[in-house]
């Protein structure tokens, strides 16, 4: 019997059986499920990068391009928080990321300038932040921007998002709000009021990352 894999998921220690997973992504998904049930913080399904000491969040379902966009941003020198999950401290409003390896498809590897290699059973390859030439940011950060990714645009464009839409996006992306009740709602509402939300219509990965890197420093 192989020892379980022990992971720290944003301050929550979880043990996951080392065997029985179809892919590396499945193993991390199992760890995430355990963390969701135990975390004292509010967890969001979101990628995140650091720019100028603040976090840029990409909330969204799987398949919306979070990992690829995060990887491209890291290639551009932005700090790596996570490609999967962030935790919001309900008291401070700061977020921390889960800096697991970034899960990229062979297509995404090529899109960020790495050699395309075959993925595992999930079709993805686990790429470390170091392989992308980036830096992991483990510190808690204030959130400056919330970005909703929309792929397949004819041209890359950033459009301001209303605070109401940012709030809806954040509420929909929360993994464990039900465990925190009204406190979570109040904290997410405050977050939506503080940040600037954006719709990012992306024509390609590189221009999307360039748009993120060029976001204004703070909400006007």
């Amino acid at each position: 019997m192989t020892d379980p894999v022990v992971l720290d998921v944003i301050g929550v220690r979880v043990e996951v059986p080392a065997e029985g997973h179809r892919s590396v992504e499945d193993l991390y998904a199992a760890a995430a499920r355990l963390a969701v049930e135990r975390s004292p913080r509010l967890l969001f399904h979101a990628g995140a990068v650091e720019r100028d000491g603040a976090a840029v969040l990409f909330p969204g379902e799987s398949g919306t391009g979070k990992s690829t966009t995060v990887a491209a941003c890291v290639r551009r020198g932005l700090g790596y928080l996570t490609d999967e999950m962030v935790a919001l401290d309900l008291d401070t409003g700061a977020v921390r990321g889960w800096p697991r390896p970034i899960m990229l498809t062979p297509w995404a590897l090529e899109a960020v300038g790495l050699p395309a290699v075959a993925g595992d059973a999930s079709g993805k390859v686990a790429v470390t932040c170091a392989e992308l030439g980036g830096t992991v940011v483990e510190a808690a950060l204030p959130v400056a921007h919330v970005v909703a990714l929309r792929r397949g645009a004819a041209a890359t464009a950033l459009t301001p998002m209303s605070a109401g839409d940012a709030l809806t996006l954040l509420l929909q992306s929360s993994f464990n709000h039900y465990r925190h009740g009204a406190a979570a709602w109040v904290a997410v509402t405050a977050l939506a009021e503080r940040v600037q939300g954006w719709w990012l219509d992306a024509a390609d990965v590189d221009s999307a990352a360039a748009a993120v890197a060029g976001l204004p420093y703070s909400r006007s």
Partner: peptide, 16 residues
């Protein structure tokens, strides 16, 4: 209220 939008929280069902 957040920038003119209204958000509601229903305590009995804990839904927003």
């Amino acid at each position: 209220h957040v920038d003119g939008a209204i958000t509601l929280f229903h305590e009995p069902t804990q839904t927003a």
